[in-house]
Design a protein around this nucleic acid. Structure first.
Lengths: 158, 158
DNA sequence: ACTGAAACTTCTGACGT
DNA sequence: ACGTCAGAAGTTTCAGT
């Protein structure tokens, strides 16, 4: 864990909101000179507190109409089986996120898809037939209440 | 749905990977002049194909040790109840993402937390006691196989 | 539609406080 | 640790093809 002061936290919060903010804009926002913001930003990038910058694309506009969460139970929990499943997850582009979890399912996947047929394809032709997989349960996203995860930096004590 | 050519898709893919790419760098990557990249980028921002840019922060480095998925079943499905639940979700900063879903649970929440006590707090003191909520089931993330959701732009036909 | 050049803005390293 | 300044780099508008 890195030592951060109030300026760092403000800077992180600002860049979390808008990743293309210039050092000048940051300077105005947090009350520091632009060069200082530049230096701090570089330090935070160097220290991997900022792990990267990404453009956020509108999935719907690009034709990805569907988001699905898919719960997976593995056939066995052998290292070999786990490895094969991870390779599968890595290969399938529609799977955006994948986590192993405590609880009844072993894995939770988030997939973005063009339509119901693509979901059916993934579930029935990719996941189900795979030797590592025992059970698949998918849920379709009806509504997004909150997205674009921001860390609650305000809860960090200086 | 917007009309995009190969250059647009390359540009989007590049910015999805690195949101701070300069127009010059984009120009080199996709084989267009910098001024053209600037114009196209502005158009894509204007059309909301690019919905924003965000710095990605390393949660662990900042002391968020825990990610949890929380499944919620509402007490009743009255509009009033749903509204109250949405307000709750909006208020709680630890809840990064929230979706309403098909399937056995009504909502799926993703929360980032400092430790197990914070999770227990949210579940037992915030979610469970809320009048709209009937049932809460939480799962802790053991491992991230895939994160940093990128849209599979390669699957888009020009 | 694209390129290239010109005017403007931003970045970043050296220096002084 | 911070701000100022100046040269370098990047951005964007505009004319030209």
């Amino acid at each position: 864990m890195v030592q951060l002061d109030t300026f760092d936290l403000k800077l992180l919060a600002a860049l979390q909101d808008d990743g293309r903010l210039t050092n000048q804009q940051l300077a105005d926002l947090i009350g520091l000179s632009a060069s200082q913001c530049s230096r701090r930003r570089m330090r935070l990038e160097e220290e991997k507190v900022i792990s990267g910058y990404h453009a956020d694309l509108a999935g719907e506009v690009l034709g990805f109409e569907l988001i699905a969460f898919i719960q997976i139970t593995l056939a066995t929990h052998s290292p070999d089986n786990a490895k094969k499943f991870r390779e599968l997850v890595g290969r399938v582009d529609a799977i955006q996120e994948a986590y192993s979890l405590t609880g009844d399912a072993d894995y939770l996947l988030k997939a973005v898809l063009r339509n119901l047929k693509s979901l059916s394809d993934i579930v029935n032709n990719v996941l189900m037939p795979h030797q590592s997989v025992a059970h698949v349960r998918s849920s379709i996203v009806l509504d997004k209440l909150k997205e674009r995860a921001k860390l609650p930096l305000s809860t960090i004590q200086k």
